[in-house]
Design a protein around this nucleic acid. Structure first.
Lengths: 114, 114
DNA sequence: CTTTATACCTTGTATTGCTAGGTATGCTAC
DNA sequence: GTAGCATACCTAGCAATACAAGGTATAAAG
């Protein structure tokens, strides 16, 4: 699926979820696995992502080709499923950034006026 | 329902909708009716709110006591249902603002790092 | 009187966040 | 060595909601 189409489908959902945006931003900084991602998001944004939210969301991102996944077994500990952002993911993220900035500016204006 | 409870229920939905936030911000600037609100939101944020989204949302806001509504018949044109933000609405909006600012700062940090 | 614009509403569908459960592995304390 | 805990992933089902697609009613314009 092409990026524009994804954006088109994402736009209505934007108000529904900063989560996809936050996850892609985080993934852009390097590969990470789900469990760690939940901890990082909480640390960074104080948003406590339920596992029942996160894992299905990551699967959706994978299904849509925005991320890829790979199992890795650390020398100590349980096997982990690492996610990596794809080229399509980066392209999509750039558009999300624009939408985010535009919306944010609009809201700033609204707040200023009041 | 008390404000904290509303926030508690709103928090998980926050990612789902900047719309409630935007509408309350707009209402804080003065009473407005649904049809005009849709036009204003589009002008301000480029978000095209479907009527099937807006009217049920306004009814939810009313149900939860964040806004009140009153029919007014202008000297010319169709009758309009004007919405006014309540004290509870203003209180709730203040908390939404905090959450918004916090989340925004977190995202700025994420964007900066990448 | 027909058309257009204004203004509000509802039904049904798809999506999605979350709760509440589950599985499996490895580490640690006894 | 085994019981308990932490790590790490997953899914079914529910509730909320954005939206499309339809509807109603009024009044202005042609």
């Amino acid at each position: 699926m092409e990026s524009d189409k994804i954006i088109e489908r994402w736009l209505p959902q934007f108000r529904k979820g900063l989560l996809e945006y936050i996850i892609l931003l985080k993934l852009q900084q390097g590969d990470i696995y789900g469990y760690e991602l939940a901890i990082e998001i909480k640390k960074l944004t104080s948003i406590e992502v339920a596992e029942g939210t996160l894992y299905p969301l990551l699967n959706r991102l994978k299904r849509d080709g925005l991320v890829s996944a790979e199992w890795k077994t650390p020398e100590v500990g349980s096997p982990r499923k690492y996610y990596e952002i794809t080229a399509l993911g980066i392209e999509t993220l750039a558009k999300m950034k624009n939408t985010w900035l535009e919306t944010h500016n609009s809201i700033i204006n609204l707040v200023m006026q009041s």
